[in-house]
């Protein structure tokens, strides 16, 4: 449980202003956010609310006007431009709405190139790229260029690329926006598995409300500020994701509180709690 509480990235009082004088626009106002290891955080909000700005700052692609971003104990907001590529390469993984694969490279090469940038070369890079892609079900698509892949396959290649250098955190910008609901669900489920099984933190910016059920936390960003926060819980009986505030019932067992989608699930849990919590722990609050 201690590992689950380890903070991977912590943004404090982030403010970002664009322009100056009469044309000044404040995209973020004193935003703070802490993401723990293995946590899936969903940031939602209307267009222009500052989601992409926040993601860019967390991804060391943009510097805040004020505030700090601590990644592995280091404030990346004060690093020089020449130091940031290494941070992005070794600690952050990016997943984009448009997949953003390199069109001239095959699926394997798209992953391999990130390994090459990190100094892993030759057969080792090739082997690791193949392993990542095979894990994501793309073992038969290694030598296909992006134009020959479906949307879901492209996004899985992008996930493999994001994971290639074993980053601490995955930053996902509308990862399901260009996918149909089934494929989108599959992608989110994979991201959730990565968070839980590989202990990666996942920050998702999305308009897609269906992602909520896979997130540990949902944050609502509007006018550059977090307006409300929804903590997501997993019903240990039916395994459905539910917002803690909207849970139909809750039960405290062995000093932990469990939340349920219905009173039926709560009753079933109370009959034999151990049956449902064996091996569980990550989702409990």
């Amino acid at each position: 449980m201690e590992a689950a509480k380890e903070s991977v990235i912590e943004a404090s009082n982030l403010t970002k202003k664009y322009g100056e004088g009469e044309t000044e626009v404040t995209a973020l106002r004193n935003v703070s956010l802490e993401v723990k290891r293995g946590e899936v955080v969903l940031i939602m909000g209307p267009s222009g609310s500052g989601k992409t700005t926040l993601l860019s700052i967390l991804g060391a692609l943009l510097k805040p006007s004020s505030g700090s971003v601590s990644l592995g104990g280091e404030d990346i907001a004060v690093l020089s431009e020449s130091e940031l590529p290494d941070v992005r390469l070794n600690h952050l993984g990016f997943i984009f709405q448009d997949f953003n694969l390199l069109s001239a490279l095959t699926a394997r090469e798209n992953v391999e190139v990130v390994l090459n940038l990190a100094g892993v070369k030759g057969a080792e890079a090739r082997k690791r790229a193949e392993a990542f892609l095979t894990d994501l079900g793309l073992g038969e698509r290694l030598d296909f260029r992006p134009e020959k892949l479906s949307g879901g396959e492209k996004q899985r290649v992008a996930i493999a690329r994001a994971l290639a250098n074993e980053p601490d955190i995955l930053l996902c910008d509308e990862p399901t926006a260009n996918l149909d609901s089934k494929i989108g669900h599959d992608i989110i489920r994979r991201l959730q598995q990565i968070a839980k099984n590989q202990r990666k933190s996942v920050v998702i910016v999305s308009h897609d409300a269906r992602i909520k059920e896979h997130a540990d936390r949902v944050l609502w960003l509007e006018d550059g500020e977090f307006k409300q926060m929804a903590v997501m819980e997993h019903d240990p009986v039916c395994e459905m994701s539910i917002e803690r505030e909207k849970a139909a019932a809750s039960v405290t067992y062995k000093d932990k509180t469990y939340y349920f989608c219905s009173k039926g699930c709560a009753g079933e849990f109370q009959e034999n709690p151990e049956k449902f919590i064996a091996g569980e722990g990550a989702h409990a609050v």
């Binding site: 991804g59 692609l61 590529p85 390469l89 990016f94 953003n100 390199l102 190139v113 990130v114």
Partner: peptide, 16 residues
Amino acid sequence: VREYGILKAIGAKNRK
């Protein structure tokens, strides 16, 4: 140019 931007975003340095 977009792909060069992607490479930069994922950690490629200018000299690369």
